[in-house]
Structure formats: structure tokens, C-alpha cells
Design a protein around this nucleic acid. Structure first.
Lengths: 114, 114
DNA sequence: ATTAAATACCTAAGAATTTTATGTATTTAC
DNA sequence: GTAAATACATAAAATTCTTAGGTATTTAAT
């Protein structure tokens, strides 16, 4: 399990990526999926996830569809067009950011420039 | 220039890495170094940096040494023993975290597991 | 010589995001 | 029938960062 501060700022990117792969997902499903994908190393808490989902919806990146499962109502999220392009941008940006960070963090080379 | 939310949570790791490479540095120097290393893509603001440096010092990871440069006083920071091991941990953890994120974010493969 | 830009430190209000804690309710497994 | 898992949600507090100042010295430009 990673220290929580690492995960900060990446949650949005993860959510957008998940939705761009899966088409639609509900909140709880996202938490399980990420836990499973990362062998429990990244754990998304619901207290962080739900407010974010609501914000992304308010911002026009996501839309929701309520589906009744027995007596319960599941809320599926999917990307709007705007959400789709936002997802691509975020993912590209993050991959690029990782290259930069790797350059800074890796070995002696990272800083042997002067 | 990356969106600021990406940089969140990575500042501490960057500072510790810089100090483990350079031995000692002063705050302003760190901002310039990172800007230079990343071609302006990562910009550390002083409003974020100084409070962090003070916190790391209070936590026993850094120690300071004041050096007079003309009429000005420069404050050099260096790692304590605790800071050194903390640096190694943080860096290793982050490199590992990047692998995990890459796995999630990269292409179709990232999620084609079920 | 004066002025602007760069160097070098700092803090504090507000914004944004996350943690922690809690709540409700249904469904599944033991 | 009870505990665990599923599934949603919010709200107070903590953390971290941005924005926006502030002070002062030194260097570069006009």
C-alpha cells in the first residue's frame, strides 16, 4: 500500500482512464477494480471518490445513468465527449510527467547535468 | 508546464532527492534547479516550498546552516540521517508507484485483465 | 545614477482535495 | 440471523497548494 500522498492528484486521471476503457462503471466498482488491478497497492476511498465523481459530473465530463438492481439503485458513470478528450489529455500528460519525474529521480544520472 | 494537480504530493520526494544528490542546497536554488532540469515544465513556487522545508526540518529530516553572502543570509538545507533513509524510501516508493500507474494508464493492456 | 530584474527569504488567507468518521440500506454468505 | 460485502452519500477536520502579498539585497541595463 502506497503512502496516501502519492495518490494525491492522480485520482482524477485514474477515474477517467477506467471509464475510457470500460465504457461505464459505478463508483464502488471503481474502488474494487483499482484495488484488484494493483494488488491492493492503490486503494481509493469512497470519501475521496464520490465527491470527485459529483464534481466531474457537474463539470460536464461525466454523465450518469441510474439502474435498479433489486431494491438498490446503482449509479453508472460514463464519459461525455468532453470527458473523453479530457481523459486523453490527462493520460498523455501524466505519462509525460512520469518521464520527467523519472529523469529527476533516477540514479546519479538524474542530476548529473552541470 | 504541467497542470499543478500533477505536482501535488511529489514535492517532498523531489526535495529529498535533490538534497540526496547535491548534499546541501538553499530554497531558491531548489526552485531554479528543478526549473532548469525540467525545462520549465515543473515549477516549484516559493509559497509551497518554504513551508515544506520548515516542516521537514521540524520533523527531523532536514537541518539548516545559515551562511552570510554579503549582507544577505542564505539558508542551506541538508539531510539528517533520518532524512537520508526517508529519501531512499520515498524515491523507491515513487518509482514503484510509477510502474503501477503506468500499468493502469498504458494502452488497452492496462486494463485487459478480466 | 537610477531603475528593473533577479536573488533570497518569509507568511497568511483562501481554495482544493483527502482523510476520517459516520450514516443509511440492501444483498450475500455463513 | 448475523456478519460481511455491496452501494450510495455527506460532513468536519487535516493537509497541501495557490495566490498574493511583504522585505531586503544584489546585479544588469539604460
Amino acid at each position: 500500500m502506497y503512502s496516501n500522498e502519492l495518490i494525491k492528484g492522480t485520482l482524477k486521471t485514474i477515474v477517467l482512464k477506467l471509464l475510457s476503457e470500460e465504457g461505464k462503471m459505478y463508483g464502488y466498482e471503481m474502488t474494487q477494480k483499482v484495488k484488484e488491478l494493483t494488488n491492493g497497492k492503490i486503494v481509493i476511498t469512497e470519501g475521496a471518490l464520490y465527491p470527485l465523481l459529483h464534481k466531474l459530473e457537474a463539470d460536464g465530463l461525466l454523465l450518469t445513468e441510474k439502474v435498479a438492481i433489486g431494491k438498490r439503485v446503482r449509479k453508472y458513470y460514463s464519459l461525455t465527449d468532453q470527458g473523453s478528450s479530457s481523459a486523453s489529455e490527462k493520460i498523455t500528460e501524466f505519462l509525460d510527467y512520469m518521464k520527467t519525474m523519472k529523469f529527476i529521480l533516477q540514479g546519479e544520472n538524474g542530476l548529473a547535468l552541470e
